[in-house]
């Protein structure tokens, strides 16, 4: 039900933004426009989502690879190091990463990607490590005793069993990235943050609300979809 309402609201805001004008116009002052029109909201949303998808994918690949590494016997000694790295990734405010990355990577998409990628690794890494080291000992022993090679154990037993928990980390990370991506517009990445920033700059709360609502709705729907997927996998 909530899902349907959120979906419908999102579609209206993206495809028929002018329908929102009566709701948002009370927030404007001095006859400023209620609806952001500099660029298509749909384009912004798609580019926002693409940025989040790319960053989350990268975080997932790196974090899961790190988790696999440190849960092998040979890699166990790197566990504290990997944990520190991912924690630092999360503690560094994305704004700071942007500020530091722009001189090296220029304006636009790349510094934003980097910031989101670093910020999103921790939850995936932590979940993956927990899941991979939580394999019930008899199952681990049985796999070894059946004659699975280490790689077969990883691919056929450990990762499939860890998948729901890893996915929960991915969901968390994707939702965080979704709301954080907005700040990418401060360095000229094309995201829904553009609408919010335009509102702040021109002192127009209607834009801020519009941008914020859009990001929020997408976040709810995305989290919901990933939760459904997770349940499927667990069953």
């Amino acid at each position: 039900m909530i899902r349907l309402v959120a979906g419908a609201a999102l579609l209206v805001m993206l495809l028929r933004p002018e329908w929102m004008a009566p709701l948002l116009s009370p927030l404007t002052r001095n006859g400023a426009p209620a609806i952001y029109a500099q660029s298509s909201l749909l384009d912004l949303a798609l580019s926002h989502l693409a940025l989040v998808a790319a960053a989350t994918l990268a975080s997932t690949l790196v974090a899961v690879a790190l988790a696999v590494l440190v849960t092998r016997r040979a890699g166990a000694e790197f566990r504290p190091l990997a944990r520190t790295v991912t924690q630092v990734g999360q503690t560094l405010p994305p704004v700071a990463v942007l500020a530091l990355a722009v001189p090296m990577l220029g304006f636009g998409t790349w510094p934003t990607l980097l910031a989101l990628f670093l910020y999103g690794m921790l939850p995936i890494f932590e979940n993956a490590v927990t899941a991979l080291s939580g394999l019930p000992p008899p199952v681990a022993e049985a796999a070894r005793a059946m004659g699975y090679t280490p790689r077969q154990r990883l691919l056929r037993i450990e990762l499939p069993l860890a998948l729901p928990v890893i996915l929960a980390g991915v969901r968390l990370s994707a939702v965080i990235a979704l709301s954080t991506a907005a700040i990418g517009s401060t360095v000229a990445a094309r995201t829904l943050g553009e609408v919010i920033i335009a509102g702040l700059v021109s002192n127009n709360p209607a834009f801020v609300v519009q941008g914020g609502l859009l990001v929020g709705l997408i976040a709810i729907l995305l989290s919901d979809a990933l939760t459904v997927l997770e349940r499927r996998l667990r069953a």
Partner: peptide, 20 residues
Amino acid sequence: AHLLRRRIGYAIQGHGLFPH
């Protein structure tokens, strides 16, 4: 070792069946 183990059956108390 893995080739040896495929020739030897092994059953334990906690059965260790693969839950998935």
